[in-house]
Design a protein around this nucleic acid. Sequence first.
DNA 1: GATCCATCTGAACAGTGTTAAGATAGATAC
DNA 2: GTATCTATCTTAACACTGTTCAGATGGATC
Lengths: 215, 215
Amino acid sequence: MKKRTSPASRSTRIAQPEPGYHHGELQEALIAASEAILAEQGAEGFTLREAARRAGVSPAAPSHHFGNAQGLLTEVAIRGYDALAGVLREAASGKEGAREKLHAQGLAYVDFALRHPGRFQMMFANKRLVADDARLRQASRAAGQAFEVVVAELVGGRPKEARTAAAAAWSTVHGFAKLALEEKFGSVKNEGRREVMMTLNQVLDYLWPARGARC
Amino acid sequence: MKKRTSPASRSTRIAQPEPGYHHGELQEALIAASEAILAEQGAEGFTLREAARRAGVSPAAPSHHFGNAQGLLTEVAIRGYDALAGVLREAASGKEGAREKLHAQGLAYVDFALRHPGRFQMMFANKRLVADDARLRQASRAAGQAFEVVVAELVGGRPKEARTAAAAAWSTVHGFAKLALEEKFGSVKNEGRREVMMTLNQVLDYLWPARGARC
DNA sequence: GATCCATCTGAACAGTGTTAAGATAGATAC
DNA sequence: GTATCTATCTTAACACTGTTCAGATGGATC
């Protein structure tokens, strides 16, 4: 503490809209910093120290708010699931008919994954999260249920079949997103993305065909 | 170099069947050590130093054979894809009829992932591998094509539709495996695994129904 | 105005991957 | 049979990482 103690230098800290901490702003600053790292560097690029650096605090500061790196990432993942659930609900709300809603949700799911790869990968990196955190599990379940409500409409309400169909839908779009992110369907940068999304369109048409199109 | 120089102490090194290195055995020892770590600790538990430790060499030794950690893991991933491709081909060969073959492949794929989670996760952790390694890409493509040959039979040879159907099949089983590993379908330990595999069975039946079962 | 207490810092620790220079020893050449 | 060559491995160091703990800091409370 030789050069950074004066109020003037303090206010130059990055990602600190209000000059004073001690007011619960550090949590938000750390979460925002983490999301920025994930967006720029991907899930593997995240480090707790870098998040602290961007928030303008020492490496030990985050521990007082989140316990450890897993705690911070868990909070980031929760927000990610909330965002995903919102995207899925909105996609369904803009369509008429169960098949069209499911179709739109599938596209929205993969679009979310390709637009926010770091965040998406981290959401499903259980080992880096507090996997049994109650709020995390709830947020994850809520996102999964976005499929279930649409699928229930598709299969006509039978709960057993709805569970199976929801698992099928989630598996398909999740697997497609993961494989696309690992470039198994070719590049996903720039115009490569459009092509990958068209492949997804065909996959969804193949698995959930328009009434009477298959068989 | 004070205590470990005598031939006697040298021979006590772990995972070193033949006492003499200098014969190309270190590559195999490092790969075997890495696979053991992945099996015991999962993908996140792998460290290059631990692999070197198990092979009985210094932390710098692997660099002479694999360049860096990514190089070693790439070799591990290649063997993983080879094993997976073998499993998929064998699963198909034991069945009659395209749908039954695809069904068996799906079960085999997820079974492979649940039995070797660390290896499986690492195979799809592009950031930890030399993603553009020619042999890795070839091994990955070979595994993916195990689906294509069966799916081509299913759709009757039309190549465009076969590509789509293969992407659909791979996506579904890959997504199911990933979600299962992240415990999204409940526990996957012990008898929980049987239940998860039954869910997969229902998913496959739902997406690729027996002739005339749906519609 | 003194005390309290949440918050944050500084410094340390054990661990990581990677690099460069040097030791070692099997293979080759004379 | 001895000397040289060359692949292989070690030692030591560097810049990182996450986490812990004693102590400084300063806003809120009495």
